[in-house]
Design a protein around this nucleic acid. Structure first.
Lengths: 234, 234
DNA sequence: TAGATTGTTAATCGATTAACAATC
DNA sequence: TAGATTGTTAATCGATTAACAATC
C-alpha cells in the first residue's frame, strides 16, 4: 500500500463533496475567486476546517488572495474521482426518482447508472427515459454487471433483502457498494462500502423535537409548581 | 433549558436509529433477548459503543443476561419520538418513491407524510395512492402546513431552489427540516435542521476506488521500475 | 456460588478549533 | 511595503476503545 489507508478522514471526504457542489453553484453565479471564509459561510463550516481539508491534498490557494473557483473544481474532480465514469447498477424499488435525481444532479458527477433492477415484479419492464434504460429483474444482475463492466452497486431495498442483494453484488464482482437500505450489510474487505441510513437522519429531527416537547413540558410543570408554591407561600 | 443541549451526541442518536431497525428485524425473527456483542456483530459497531449509547438513556439491560428486545424497542421508541406522529410535508421532485419508501419502512416510525408538493408542474395532480394524497403546487405550502398542522419539512429539490424552499418552510412555521438537496441551507436556530448529502456518501466510493486505482498504478509503475533497475543491474 | 454480561471509568485516539507564521 | 489570506501548528475538545467492577 503506497499511501496509508485512512490518511484522509471520512469527514474530510464528505466535506469535499459538499464544497464541490457549492463551488459549482458559485461558478454558475459568475464567481471566479473566493476566500475560505466566504465558502465557510455558505456551507456552514468554519473557514479553518475548509483550509485544512483542502491543504490535505495540496496547496490550492494563493495567500492574500484566495482560491480560484474553476481551478479548485478541477482539482476536486481529480481528487474525488469525478472525472472518471463509474459504471453503476441500482437494485431497488420505486426507481424512477433515481432518473430524476440524476437529472437534478443529486448524484456526484461520474456516476453513470447503466442498469436498474427491481425486486418488485410490478415494475419490471418500466421505461426510464432519462437513463435510456428499462427496469430489469434481479435474475439478470450477474449478466448485466459482467456485460456492462459495472463497478458500483447501489442498494435501495427493504431490510430483509439487503444482505442478499449485497452478497449477489459482491459475487457479481462490483468493487464498491452504497447501501441505502435501513439496515447495515457486511461485505468482504476488498469491497468499498458506504452505508446511508436516511431514517437515521430524520430521527435526529424526531429526537430533537421530542426533547423540545419534554423541555417545554418540564418547564411548564416547574412553572406550575413554582406558581403553586408561590401561592402556598402567600 | 432543563437538559443541557448537546448532552447526547449526534453520533449516538444516529446509532440509536440503526439499533432500532435491526432490533425490529430481530423481533421478527423471534429473538427475545440479545447481548450487546450479538447486536454489535450485526450492525458492525463495537459492543462497548452499544452499551455506552444505551446507558446514556438509562439502565435497559440485565447484567449477566442481556437486553430484552421488545422492552428495548419500546424504550427507543419513546427516546427517539417514534411513538408520536410527526406531521410532515415533502417538497421535491419525482416523488412517487417516497410513497414506496414509506411502504418499505425507509422512514422512521412516526413520520407521516400529509402533503407532497412539487416544483415541476408536470407532476402536479399526480396521485400517490400509498399516501392517499395528490401532488400539490408549491403555492399551497403555507396553507397546507397551517391546515394540516405540519411540523416537519423534507426538502428534495435542486441546489438553486433549496434555500428558497427552506425559507418558505420556516416562514410557514415548520419546526424541523430535513434537507436532502445537494447544497446546505441555513435556518434560524429555533428550527431543527438535518442535512443529508447523498452525493457526499457516494463520493466516498468514487474516492476510494480512485485511490485504489492510483495505488495499483503506482505499484505497477514501481514494479516496472524495479524490474528495469533489476535489468540494469544485471 | 460460578459464570456471564452490563454499566462505567480511565486511557487512547482523532477531529476541531484558534492562532499565527509564511507568503502572495 | 502594507494588507490580506493561506497553510500549518499547537491546544482543545469530543468520541471511541478497552478494561473491569458491579450485579444479575
Amino acid at each position: 500500500m503506497i499511501k496509508q489507508r485512512g490518511a484522509i478522514s471520512k469527514a474530510t471526504i464528505g466535506r469535499m463533496a459538499i464544497y464541490y457542489n457549492t463551488l459549482k453553484q458559485m461558478k454558475d453565479e459568475g464567481v471566479e475567486v473566493f476566500v475560505s471564509r466566504a465558502l465557510g459561510r455558505r456551507v456552514g463550516i468554519p473557514s479553518a476546517v475548509i483550509r485544512r481539508d483542502l491543504a490535505e491534498f495540496g496547496e490550492f490557494g494563493t495567500q492574500g488572495v484566495g482560491y480560484d473557483v474553476k481551478y479548485l473544481l478541477w482539482r476536486i474532480e481529480k481528487i474525488m474521482g469525478y472525472h472518471s465514469v463509474w459504471k453503476t447498477v441500482v437494485v431497488g424499488v420505486g426507481l424512477p426518482i433515481l432518473a430524476i435525481n440524476q437529472y437534478y444532479s443529486f448524484l456526484p458527477p461520474g456516476i453513470r447508472i447503466l442498469a436498474v433492477l427491481d425486486l418488485d415484479e410490478r415494475n419490471l419492464g418500466q421505461p426510464l427515459p432519462e437513463l435510456d434504460l428499462c427496469v430489469e429483474p434481479l435474475e439478470r444482475l450477474e449478466e448485466l454487471v459482467r456485460d456492462r463492466e459495472i463497478r458500483i452497486g447501489i442498494i435501495i431495498v427493504s431490510p430483509a433483502q439487503a444482505q442478499m442483494v449485497a452478497d449477489r453484488l459482491v459475487q457479481a464482482g462490483v468493487e464498491g457498494i452504497a447501501n441505502f437500505s435501513p439496515v447495515p450489510v457486511s461485505v468482504p474487505e476488498t469491497v468499498s462500502l458506504t452505508q446511508v441510513n436516511m431514517g437515521s437522519w430524520l430521527s435526529h429531527l424526531t429526537f430533537d423535537l421530542s426533547q423540545t416537547a419534554t423541555e417545554n413540558y418540564l418547564l411548564e410543570f416547574i412553572g406550575t409548581r413554582w406558581i403553586k408554591e408561590s401561592l402556598t407561600c402567600e
